[in-house]
Amino acid sequence: MYAVVKTGGKQYRVAAGEKIKVEQIAADVGQEVVIDQVLAVGNGGDLKVGAPLVSGATVTAVVLSQGRHDKVRIFKLRRRKHYQKHGGHRQAYTELQISAINA
Results as ranks from 00 to 15, higher is better:
24 Q>C: 02
55 S>E: 14
33 V>E: 00
41 V>P: 07
44 G>F: 04
47 L>T: 15
50 G>V: 01
34 V>Q: 04
50 G>R: 01
31 Q>E: 15
35 I>F: 14
39 L>Y: 08
31 Q>A: 15
31 Q>L: 06
36 D>N: 13
35 I>G: 07
44 G>D: 09
35 I>V: 12
34 V>Y: 01
27 A>C: 05
56 G>V: 13
42 G>C: 01
26 A>E: 14
47 L>M: 15
41 V>I: 13
29 V>K: 08
39 L>R: 09
32 E>H: 08
26 A>M: 12
42 G>D: 03
52 P>N: 10
39 L>G: 09
45 G>R: 11
37 Q>H: 09
39 L>T: 07
47 L>G: 09
43 N>V: 03
34 V>K: 10
39 L>D: 09
48 K>R: 14
35 I>D: 05
54 V>H: 05
26 A>N: 15
51 A>F: 05
25 I>S: 09
33 V>Y: 00
48 K>G: 06
45 G>D: 15
24 Q>Y: 06
37 Q>A: 10
42 G>F: 00
52 P>R: 08
49 V>Q: 11
28 D>R: 12
41 V>K: 04
45 G>P: 02
29 V>L: 00
48 K>C: 11
50 G>Y: 01
33 V>R: 00
57 A>S: 15
41 V>Q: 04
32 E>M: 08
24 Q>V: 10
50 G>M: 01
26 A>P: 07
25 I>C: 08
51 A>C: 04
56 G>L: 13
27 A>S: 10
42 G>N: 02
41 V>Y: 10
46 D>S: 07
44 G>N: 09
28 D>K: 14
47 L>W: 09
51 A>L: 08
49 V>P: 03
24 Q>N: 11
41 V>E: 06
55 S>Y: 00
44 G>H: 06
57 A>D: 13
31 Q>S: 15
48 K>S: 14
39 L>P: 06
32 E>P: 11
56 G>Y: 12
53 L>E: 05
57 A>K: 10
32 E>A: 12
29 V>A: 03
27 A>E: 04
37 Q>I: 01
57 A>W: 10
31 Q>H: 08
52 P>T: 07
48 K>Q: 15
37 Q>R: 13
31 Q>R: 10
44 G>S: 06
39 L>W: 06
31 Q>I: 03
54 V>D: 04
48 K>T: 15
39 L>E: 08
47 L>N: 12
39 L>H: 08
38 V>G: 12
49 V>G: 05
54 V>T: 06
46 D>L: 04
34 V>E: 08
27 A>W: 01
34 V>C: 01
49 V>A: 11
46 D>V: 07
49 V>R: 14
34 V>F: 02
33 V>T: 00
55 S>A: 13
38 V>L: 11
45 G>N: 14
25 I>A: 08
38 V>T: 11
28 D>G: 13
52 P>W: 06
37 Q>T: 11
37 Q>Y: 01
36 D>V: 03
28 D>N: 14
